[in-house]
């Protein structure tokens, strides 16, 4: 899923101040699962904003809505009746959802209520960890199923670097060394000979480096 962090309330207040009709818009997908932008968090943020305006003696209307998917035009368009009465939308979906909303509603400012961070998964309740950077050319078959692009601080493809200590990365004792994990897994798979295969220079043109990316599935695209 896409994992995000809630922005500090002060930052959101700084952006919406001056407006009197504010809609907090959540999303039922990734941000709900990572507990930052679902119906529950929309309610919490809306309450906090109402409390702020109340304390300031300002009369403001703070509405709440949660779309099925903000990254899907069908749902974004379907929210028109809800969205258009408002002066500003605080989207607590990921950066994709926030932009899809902004693209549809060109008369209403749409601002982010979260900082979108990474593609990852939940290790346990309340703990999410990065697993993919969408480089566009998956290497997992060669690296025992552990991604050095997203999990190595230097995205070293022939690692580990000299900074690996006791299974941890040089940047922090809290970060696993991806190459330690790769070596451990190659070892448990009985494939240590694969370690010595040099990974060639990577074609990064399928990555962010190649510019904004698009995928078209011909058989379903109209």
């Amino acid at each position: 899923m896409i994992v995000a962090n809630g922005k500090p309330l002060e930052e959101i207040i700084g952006v919406v101040k001056g407006h009197r009709k504010i809609l907090v818009a959540g999303c039922n997908e990734c941000v709900t699962v990572c507990e930052v932008g679902g119906t529950k968090e929309v309610g919490i943020l809306a309450s906090a904003l109402r409390l702020h305006f109340l304390n300031q003696g300002v009369e403001a209307q703070v509405g709440e809505t949660t779309l099925q998917r903000q990254c899907d035009r069908e749902y974004v368009v379907g929210a028109r009746v809800t969205v258009e009465p408002y002066e500003i939308v605080v989207s607590v979906a990921c950066g994709v959802g926030c932009q899809f909303m902004a693209e549809e509603y060109n008369k209403v400012p749409v601002v982010p209520g979260v900082d979108t961070s990474f593609m990852g998964g939940a290790l346990e309740r309340g703990v999410w960890s990065e697993r993919c950077q969408g480089c566009g050319t998956c290497l997992l078959a060669k690296t025992a199923g552990i991604c050095p692009v997203s999990r190595c601080a230097k995205r070293v493809l022939n690692g580990p670097c000299g900074g690996s200590t006791k299974g941890k990365c040089e940047i922090s004792k809290d970060v696993d060394c991806a190459w330690q994990l790769i070596v451990d897994r190659l070892s448990s798979l009985g494939r240590m000979e694969d370690y010595e295969v040099l990974t060639p220079i990577k074609d990064w043109s399928t990555d962010r480096a190649g510019g904004p990316r698009m995928r078209i599935k011909e058989e379903v695209a109209s």
């Binding site: 601080a153 230097k154 995205r155 070293v156 493809l157 022939n158 690692g159 670097c161 000299g162 900074g163 040089e170 940047i171 040099l198 060639p200 220079i201 990064w204």
Partner: peptide, 28 residues
């Protein structure tokens, strides 16, 4: 060399490149 991570230095907020790694630099 690959180089120490930038978080150790005076530009911790900077990007790193790592287009190649140290082995690929040798090959280059």
């Amino acid at each position: 060399l690959s180089g120490d991570h930038q978080s150790f230095g005076d530009c911790a907020a900077g990007q790193n490149v790592h287009d190649l790694d140290s082995m690929q630099l040798i090959q280059t």
